[in-house]
Amino acid sequence: MKKLFKTHETYVALTVIALCLVIGIINPVFFSAPNIVNLFRNATVNGIMAFALMMGIIIGGIDVAFPAVAVCSMYLTTKTLESMGYDGPVFIPILAAALIGTLLGLINGLIITKFDLPAFIVTLGTSSLYHGLLVWLVGSKPVNRLEPPLEAFGKMEIFRVTNDTTSAALPWTFVFMVAMALVVWFILNKTMLGRTIFAIGGDRTSAERAGYPVKRTIVFTYTFIGMAGGLAGIIHAIQSQMCIPTDLMGCEMMIIAAVVLGGTTISGGRGTVLGTCLGLAVITIAKNSLILVGITATWQRFVLGLIIVIGTAVSAYQALRASRKIAPVMTEEEEGGVVNG
């Protein structure tokens, strides 16, 4: 029980509950079933990207290129399908988008490791490189109507809830987010790869000396984020039933915020799937429900910014306090104060 109160996840969970209660008391519409289903629907695309990005942050890096990767994948895929009048199974375009993402992510990873460059600046560069190249060469004309297989897949519902005023459905695309969360959880907790990622994030030099394949793992992580970006892109297109090549650009801020709010330390080495779920919940609720409590659209960005600053401040301050605590504890141990744990 005591341990439960020490974890960061508990605080984030309390924040989520508090946020829900405040919004729900001011405007009971928040607790209506369609609204809640809509929140889950809206979290799908961001969630796919957030879980993958979390791995990048745990390893001690960062990626801001995944929105551009997502746009490249969805636009290239939907544009190609449109020109060939595609009518095959739906998994092929999804696979193709993920493949494009994988390739672009691999390029990021290779540049970062080969030349030992800061990930933030590299991905910022490749972000504008990818997006600029895409719109310059392919154009910016939106794909207004997806091909029938994708359109049909977007309309497939897991279930639908209806009350007297509105109705909302959870689409099958939601499954992709759940799958991504499970895959990331599995990699981080059940595989050697996951241990390597945590080891590199904790202390890269030590990981290198201990014989972990550091560079290979970093390349894998950025490739994985690229793959998730590609997947998120095509899912976004399927959910919105169209493809605009300027959509999603600039969403990296929210995703990073979700991951960091969830307790993943930005300097690496710590982070959980559960935490990211909760961080994602905070961001999704704040983004979609501020309007319900009467905060107008013009002030939304300010309030979101405040939530991000306060959230990251709390988690950073805890880490800072913890690191200051370690020093005296260690001297005590040296004096022979600790006998049995």
Binding site: L124, G125, S127, G132
Partner: peptide
């Protein structure tokens, strides 16, 4: 967008 591309390219190349 060609300029956007070039800035990204130059940034990576410079590093």
């Amino acid at each position: 967008y060609f300029k956007t591309f070039i800035w990204g390219f130059v940034l990576i190349a410079a590093m």
